[in-house]
């Protein structure tokens, strides 16, 4: 949760349209970059929403539903901006409901099935630690719209991280049963976490323009938050590499995403344009 390095904009923040007028070659990378953000929050938001009505206690059920709604709210903003930048007449809903799995750009971590509540909370925590570090830098993005969205989302994600890290500590340092489940969850999810901080050419182009940070620059902040919390939770950081499972940000997904989309997109696929 440290704010050691913010991305340094080359110039004061400017609207996306102005940035693209000066550098039209950034349009395609920016659409991808924004889809990566929006798809991450969309798929995780959907996963968390699967708990609605099934939470272990009424209070936890509502808290998870609130978190899911926050994430879907971020999705509307990120995918809305992605659609606007793309400029092909698509909306945020079109991007969410009418793309197939291979066109999604979320990291694999968020599509892993929920498992038990321990795995759900561990995944949220591992994501929140990254999400918070990312948004802390995005508030000084060179693109005005991105900085504004990040400022709004950061307040919510601050609470998400507060809550998930607290629960990881309580359950990790809880009973023998809860400790074992949290350790198993961490061991299962660990190989997926490295992708969050693993950049490619698209990331490099956007980072150079000061629009989005280089994913690798988030690693130290993520590492510090995660290791501190896991130590307090008496959980052992797995020894293997954490960047084994990746490819989601390039469109290579696990089998789980297809099933998730089948459920999430059913209504709009069966009744295109349906509204309520």
């Amino acid at each position: 949760m440290s704010a050691d390095a913010t991305i340094a904009p080359l110039a004061p923040a400017r609207p996306v349209d102005d940035l693209l007028a000066a550098a039209p070659e950034l349009r395609a990378p920016l659409v991808t970059g924004l889809c990566r953000l929006g798809d991450a929050t969309l798929i995780l938001g959907h996963r968390v929403s699967e708990w609605c009505g099934h939470g272990p206690a009424l209070e936890e059920d509502i808290a998870l539903a609130n978190t899911a709604l926050d994430l879907i709210g971020h999705t509307q903003m990120w995918l809305g901006l992605a659609a606007q930048v793309e400029g092909r007449g698509r909306s945020a809903d079109d991007l969410a409901y009418h793309r197939d799995a291979m066109h999604f750009r979320n990291p694999l971590l968020v599509e892993v099935p929920n498992g038990d509540i321990g795995r759900t909370l561990m995944r949220l925590f591992l994501f929140d630690a990254w999400h918070h570090a990312l948004l802390e830098r995005l508030v000084s993005s060179s693109a005005t719209e991105i900085a504004e969205i990040a400022a709004k989302a950061l307040k919510e994600v601050h609470y998400h991280l507060d809550r998930s890290s607290d629960l990881v500590v309580r359950l990790g340092d809880g009973s023998e049963e809860s400790h074992a489940r949290m350790q198993a969850a961490l061991d299962l999810l660990w190989p997926y976490t490295g992708e969050l901080c693993f950049g490619d050419d698209t990331d490099a182009a956007l980072a150079e323009a000061g629009i989005l940070p280089e994913p690798g620059d988030l690693r130290s902040a993520w590492d510090a938050t995660v290791r501190e919390t896991l130590a307090e939770a008496t959980l052992a950081v797995p020894e293997g590499r954490n960047d084994v499972q990746r490819g989601g940000r390039q469109g290579r997904h696990t089998e789980h995403l297809g099933y998730l989309l089948a459920e999430m997109q059913f209504l709009q696929r069966a009744y295109p344009g349906a509204e309520w």
Binding site: L58, E59, I62, A63, N66, Y159, R163, D166
Partner: peptide, 12 residues
């Protein structure tokens, strides 16, 4: 935790 839960249950 009660304060947190109250935030989620009663101040939405």
């Amino acid at each position: 935790t009660a304060v947190r839960n109250a935030r989620d249950v009663y101040t939405r």
